[in-house]
Amino acid sequence: MKRPRDTRLAVMLLTPAFAVLGVFGVGPLFYAIYMSFFRMVRGGGKTFIGASNYSEALTSEEFWNSFFVTFYYALGVVPVTIVLSFFIAAGLFRATRFRGLLRTLFFLPYVTSVVASAMIWRVLLDPSAGVANHLLRVAGLSTQNWLLEPKGALSILSGGVIDIGVGPSLALCCVIAFDIWISSGFMVVVLLAGLSAIPREIEEAARIDGASWWQSARNVTLPLLSPTLMFLAIVSLIRAFQAFSSFFALTGNGRGPLDTTQNMTVYLYANFYEYGRLGYGAAVAVLLCVALAALTIVQWRAFGRKVYYR
C-alpha cells in the first residue's frame, strides 16, 4: 500500500517535468492545433476559417510533394542504415585488432557537425570541380549534377526509360546517402552495446551444433537483438520525419532543385518563417505529426510482436 509520503514525494519529483512538458510541449501543441483553424498571416491578423488550411494542404501539389520527399527519405535512410550498421557492428564485434580505432572512425561522422560535414559533401559533389564527377570522368562515365539534379535517380539509372518524376530525385538520393553516413555511427554504437549483451554461450552452442555464421546471425543474434533493432527503427523513423539540418546544409535552402528535397519539415519551415503563413504552417505541422503517429502505430503493430524480450 502506498504511503501518503510516497505520493507527496512522487508529486514533488514529477512536478518540474510536468511543468516543462506543459509549457514547452502540451501548451504549444494545443496552440498549434488552435492556430491551424485560423488564417494567420504574419502581421495580418487572424480569421477563423475552420478546416480550410487542412483542405488546402491536402489538395496542394506542393504538400504532397513534400510528403513523398519525406517518405522516400525515410524509406531510403531507415532500413539501409539499420542493415548497414548491423553488418558493420557485427564485423567490429568480432574484430580483434584496431577495434577501438575502428569504432572511433565509424562514430566520428555522428559527432561531427552536420553543417561542417555537409560543406565537405557539397564540395565533393560539386558538378564542375567535385571529386565525385572527377572519379566518374576517370571511369569513363557521364558526370552528374548531384545536388543540383531534380530528375529522378531511377530515370537517370534507366537511361530515361523511367519517367523523370518517378521516385526520389538524384539530389534527394545525395541527401539520403549523407544521412546514412552520418547516422550509421550512432546505430553501430547502439548495436555493439546490444551485441555485447547477448550471452556468448548461446551463440557458441549454436556454432557447436553446426550452425553457419549466417544461420547463427539469423536464428540467434537477430532475435536476441530485436529489442535494440526495434528501438533503432522507431527512433530513426521519427528522426527521418523530423530531418531538417542535413537538407538545409546540403542544398542551401532545404528545398533543393525544383523543391525535390523539400520534405515536410522544410515545407513547414518555409511556410512559417519565409512566407509568413502561420496558420497554414501549423496545419502542416499537425498533419506531419498525425502521419508520424500513424506510421509509428503501424510499425509497432507490424513488428512489435516479433520483438523477442528475454
Binding site: G27, M35, F272, L288, T296, G304, R305
Partner: peptide, 26 residues
C-alpha cells in the same frame, strides 16, 4: 501492454512534432 506503450509513444511524438510551431505566438 503494447497498446499502452504505443499510445504513450504517439503522445510523445505529437509533443515533439508540434511543439516548435506552437511556440510562435504574437
Amino acid at each position: 501492454n503494447n497498446n499502452g506503450k504505443a499510445a504513450g509513444l504517439v503522445l510523445g511524438l505529437v509533443l515533439v512534432a508540434v511543439s516548435d510551431v506552437g511556440c510562435g505566438t504574437d
